[in-house]
Amino acid sequence: MAPPSVRVAVALGALFGFAWAAAFRAYMSELAGPASKIDWFGTFGAIVLPGAIVGGLLGWAHALRMRGGRPGWRWLALAPLLFAVAPMFLPGALEALVTEGLGGGAVGVALLAIGGGFAISGRGPLWARIVCGVMSAVLLAGAAATALFLGRAALPGNEARGWWTLLLAASLLMILVLAASIPFRPVLTHAPAGLRPNGGPESGSSGRE
């Protein structure tokens, strides 16, 4: 299979990231219930736009990986940190995080994505991947289980809605982990010569890892 165009990969990644973030916002609305508020800055600026950017960066990582990598491309693994950084620009967000712990969920999503992506990548020390995998599994279980105990979908009395919300959260987070694993995965060394860094032959992992 020919490697995708970088522009196409970034555009598709941004589209997928937009859709993912919009769906995750629906999950958040279920937790908040009637108190949930859709606005331009809080919803689009702090959730949907960062989702599109993260998706675009991971799409870029996919295109680079298919071409054998390039110097520094692994730093794209930090793209999910934008989910933790963007909400900090909301008025009073930093104070609420420090004093009340509000907004910690965004930090948890970013850590889950990066840790889980590393855990399933197949690269790196086994012990480190196990530690990251356990941490991410705990975060995923906690995020999904909140659907059963918080907000308008909470059990008892609303079993179908609660389990739908749990499955929505779990599936979205697992998709995020899969996407976040891209920059951690081994490069494809069989890329055509014209698509390799500098257009030359492969020379091991130096400079691309």
Rank of each mutant, 00 (worst) to 15 (best):
53 I>L: 15
135 M>P: 00
184 F>Q: 03
153 A>M: 06
31 L>I: 15
177 V>L: 08
67 R>C: 13
133 G>Q: 05
69 G>E: 13
119 A>H: 01
54 V>P: 12
51 G>T: 06
82 L>P: 06
152 R>K: 12
187 V>A: 06
176 L>C: 07
130 I>S: 02
75 W>Y: 15
40 W>P: 03
12 L>G: 03
11 A>L: 15
55 G>Q: 10
84 A>M: 12
3 P>T: 00
89 F>H: 11
34 P>N: 14
164 W>G: 04
127 W>A: 14
28 M>R: 06
202 E>N: 10
108 G>H: 02
5 S>T: 06
164 W>C: 00
41 F>H: 02
121 S>P: 08
111 L>Y: 06
152 R>Q: 13
65 R>T: 13
18 F>R: 00
111 L>P: 07
111 L>T: 09
167 L>D: 00
37 K>G: 07
172 L>K: 07
36 S>Y: 14
18 F>M: 10
189 T>K: 03
199 G>W: 03
122 G>K: 06
160 A>R: 07
58 L>N: 13
91 P>R: 13
33 G>W: 13
102 L>T: 13
140 L>Y: 01
113 A>T: 04
99 T>K: 15
9 A>M: 07
88 M>Q: 15
46 A>V: 10
71 P>A: 07
94 L>I: 15
194 G>A: 13
196 R>V: 09
103 G>C: 11
129 R>A: 00
9 A>H: 10
120 I>C: 05
140 L>I: 05
66 M>C: 14
172 L>I: 06
126 L>W: 08
75 W>I: 14
6 V>Q: 03
